[in-house]
Structures are given as structure tokens and as C-alpha cells.
Design a binder for these strands. Structure first.
Length: 297
DNA sequence: CACTTGACCTGTCCGC
DNA sequence: TGCGGACAGGTCAAGT
């Protein structure tokens, strides 16, 4: 569920919260959560300081002063939540325990915690992941771009190099496929998931099952513009919290309340008042307005 | 090549 | 109240 805007929100939060801190301990439940050897963890993670935090597509890259990096994919239910133990104790002392602070989650670690990382100053970073689809691995910073995941990844939609021309060139690599499937293909554009695919297609008035080569130029232009503006707006709103997603402080994003079709089946389309429907496309639940978004045969 | 299905998991919700 | 099953959706591998 974390897509580009959610991962970007986590990245910005972590940049503010953990850059410069030194790692003291790292605990993880199973080898699967953290596939590196204990020797590597001790040598390249323990004692390291956080240098900076990058994002590529839906993946976070935490660069360390040891010239190693933690590469993290949150997949659907992953969370990276920072807790400053000292600040939390001070707040509890002043306001009492359980004082409402906007956090979506309770005390950590909890059942979903897979990795706990403590810093020398007492703060903690938790990697929670209810469904355990996410992954995290430590590797030399210089090797990060060489892993299969990054080699396959398409262009970043929020970089200024993502022009309409590049967008159309990328789409045409799968011109016989349905547009929804193509938008979800990370090798075509990095970072779009189910929510933003549906929202962008509604904004551009394109049916999700339209073949790429049947979409008119004006609609392709509109789609390019809606992808960029919707991703930007969502980042501004701190991402979408549909179920699990929280930012680095454990708080929800508010973009979902701006969604026009996602999880709105049965409700009236804001443009034409036709009832929004939900179909299955590219194997995913897909939301659309059947009047605004006509299939081009 | 396009497309679907299954695997990886667990929490939630629905119908019986 | 319990229980089976469907569903949620990011990615990859395998099958049609």
C-alpha cells in the first residue's frame, strides 16, 4: 500500500528524525526479515551513523557512514516508525500515559515488529510488517544500483526529466497492453500503485482496460499531467492512509479523503453523478466512473 | 508476447 | 459465537 507518496513521506520524516544518529543495536525476529549474516550486521551496521535517506520508486535507501546502505521495501503493510524514548517519557510524565498524540499505533514493539534498531541516544526505529511481504537488506552503497530491482525500475515520475515525451515513449513499450496494467508496471514508471493508478485514470477520463495504442494524444497528455499533479498533492497531504500506512512518526496521511474513485464504489462520481463501480483489472480491484471513463474499442 | 494465477502472509469482514 | 472463505495488493515466478 505504500506507493510513491507514502514512501516519500516516510523518507522525509526519517531524514528529519534519524540522520546523524548512531546505531547501537539491531534485533530481528528471523533470518527472513534480515537476510544478512550476523557478521555483516556487526561490522557494517552496529556503530554506523545515518548519512542520508533516499527513495527510488517505492524503495527506501538508508545510507550509512560505513559505506553500506540499508535497502527497504515496505510492500503492502510495512511501516518504519521512529520513537524517541526520552521525548515519549517526558510527554507521559507531563500529560499522562495514553495521551492522544495522533499516532495510529500503540506501544512498540508489537506483534508485527520484525526489526528493532536502537540508537546510542536512546531513540528507536521499528520496522513493522503485519503481512511480512516487505524486505530489508544491507549492502555496500556502491552496489545498490546494481541489484535487479533497481536495474529494472523505470523513470521517477516527479523528476523534471519525466517529460510527456518520455512518458509516452515508456508507455509505448507496452502499447498492446491495458493502461491499468502498464501504470502498475514498475519498469515503465516507478512508484505508481493501485490507488494512484485509479485516481490518475479517473482524472484523465480513461477506462483502465483501454489499450495504450488506442488512447488519444490529448488523453495521454492529460494522464501525464494528472499522474504528476496527483502524486505531488498526495505528498503534500502526507500520503494516503487506507489501512496500515503510517509515516515515520506513526501518523496517518490524509490524501485518501481527496480520492475521487478509490474505494468509492457505490458513490456518485463528482463530475457526472454516475455511480462509481469496482471491477477487476490486471488482477486488482479497480475503481472507475463508467460514464466518464469509456472503453475505446 | 500478453495475460492470468499462485505464492508469499495475516487481519478483517461477511455469510452461514 | 464460531468458522470457512474471500479479500486486501507489491512483486516475482510460473503457467496458459
Amino acid at each position: 500500500m505504500p506507493e510513491l507518496p507514502e514512501v516519500e513521506t516516510v523518507r522525509a520524516g526519517l531524514e528529519r528524525l534519524i540522520v546523524g544518529r548512531a546505531i547501537q543495536t539491531v534485533e530481528y525476529d528471523t533470518q527472513k526479515s534480515f537476510p544478512n549474516s550476523p557478521e555483516d550486521v556487526t561490522a557494517f551496521l552496529i556503530g554506523a551513523r545515518i548519512k542520508n535517506i533516499q527513495r527510488r520508486g517505492k524503495v527506501l535507501i538508508i545510507d550509512l557512514t560505513t559505506n553500506y546502505s540499508l535497502v527497504i521495501h515496505l510492500k503492502m503493510t510495512g511501516q518504519l516508525v521512529f520513537v524517541d524514548t526520552h521525548a515519549k517519557r517526558a510527554a507521559e510524565k507531563r500529560f499522562g500515559a495514553g495521551h492522544p498524540n495522533g499516532s495510529l499505533i500503540g506501544d512498540l514493539p508489537d506483534r508485527s515488529t520484525r526489526v528493532t534498531c536502537t540508537f546510542k541516544d536512546g531513540a528507536t526505529l521499528y520496522f513493522n510488517d503485519q503481512r511480512k511481504f516487505g524486505w530489508m537488506r544491507l549492502l555496500p552503497t556502491i552496489e545498490v544500483p546494481e541489484i535487479d530491482f533497481f536495474k529494472r525500475l523505470g523513470p521517477e515520475p516527479l523528476q523534471n526529466t519525466f517529460t510527456r515525451t518520455l512518458f509516452i515513449t515508456q508507455l509505448m513499450r507496452r502499447k498492446h497492453s491495458r493502461i491499468k496494467a502498464v501504470l502498475l508496471d514498475q519498469s515503465i514508471i516507478a512508484g505508481i500503485g493501485n490507488i494512484y493508478a485509479d485516481e490518475s485514470l479517473w482524472a484523465a477520463k480513461i477506462h483502465p482496460e483501454t489499450r495504450v495504442d488506442r488512447i488519444s494524444r490529448p488523453k495521454l497528455k492529460a494522464l501525464h499531467e494528472s499522474i504528476v499533479s496527483i502524486l505531488r498533492l498526495s505528498i503534500q497531504k502526507g500520503g494516503s492512509t487506507d489501512r496500515n500506512y503510517v509515516n515515520a512518526e506513526g501518523k496517518k496521511g490524509s490524501y485518501i479523503q481527496f480520492a475521487k474513485v478509490f474505494r468509492k464504489e457505490g458513490q456518485a462520481c463528482e463530475r457526472c453523478h454516475t455511480t462509481i463501480i469496482k471491477i477487476r483489472s490486471a488482477g486488482r480491484g479497480t475503481h472507475l466512473c463508467p460514464r466518464c471513463q469509456k472503453v475505446v474499442a
